[in-house]
Amino acid sequence: MLKIENLEVTYGNIKAIKGISLEVNQGEIVTLIGSNGAGKSTTLRTISGILKPKSGSITFNGERIEGVEGHEIVAKGICQSPEGRRIFPKMTVDENLDLGAFLRNDKAEIKRDRQRVLELFPKLQERIDQKAGTMSGGEQQMLAVGRALMGSPKLLLLDEPSMGLAPVLVEMIFETIKKINDQGTTILLVEQNALAALNVADRAYVLESGSIKMSGKARDLISNDEVTKAYLGG
């Protein structure tokens, strides 16, 4: 579904991504783990067209999409819940969800997706007319994921959905990710919480200072000594 080959991204003279290749297949949850500054968010931002790559290719359903404008990427079916949530703080939860479906015209389908989002995150229903900026971090995270789902994505990009959340919420978010995937959405998940990510994912890539260091089935990586030592606190 998504294929990245030899992708290189730079900030000025600094190479953030040094020629990575990875693949996401239809129906999978693939996770990209690694420490702070490894280039995980940069990778997602480049897929979404916010950053332009220096070289390499990104192919989505057989179509080259590297360097395509951000809003066109959404039209192709890739939605992102960005790092730091980036919800629209002065708008209500309702308006935020509406904006998630900005490019869609199919009223009935939008209504169905909204229903589905509110079922996944019942908290959002309670807060529906509240200004998004006044909600707690966890609620904002739910809104960010829900908003991305409102775009009815073929591929959902999740950037650090567990960051800064209480443990009980982290568990809830990962259960929801699994549920979203079961309902048929392919997911590329970026996480610092490697253990939780590996537990829900089918496959994983380990990113270290801009290069892919390891990749494989998620359950194999959990039991891999090197991964355990570096990322799972073993």
């Binding site: 979404s48 067209g49 916010i50 404008e69 951000g70 809003h71 959404v74 039209a75 939605c79 992102q80 960005p82 980036r86 919800i87 629209f88 703080p89 002065k90 708008m91 904006l99 998630g100 900005f102 490019l103 908003r147 991305a148 775009g151």
Partner: peptide, 17 residues
């Protein structure tokens, strides 16, 4: 209004900034 609050987030919604 979305672009005014956060242009990059607006892009991620499919808005042509």
């Amino acid at each position: 209004r979305a672009t005014a609050q956060d242009a990059d987030a607006a892009r991620l919604m499919g808005i042509n900034v």
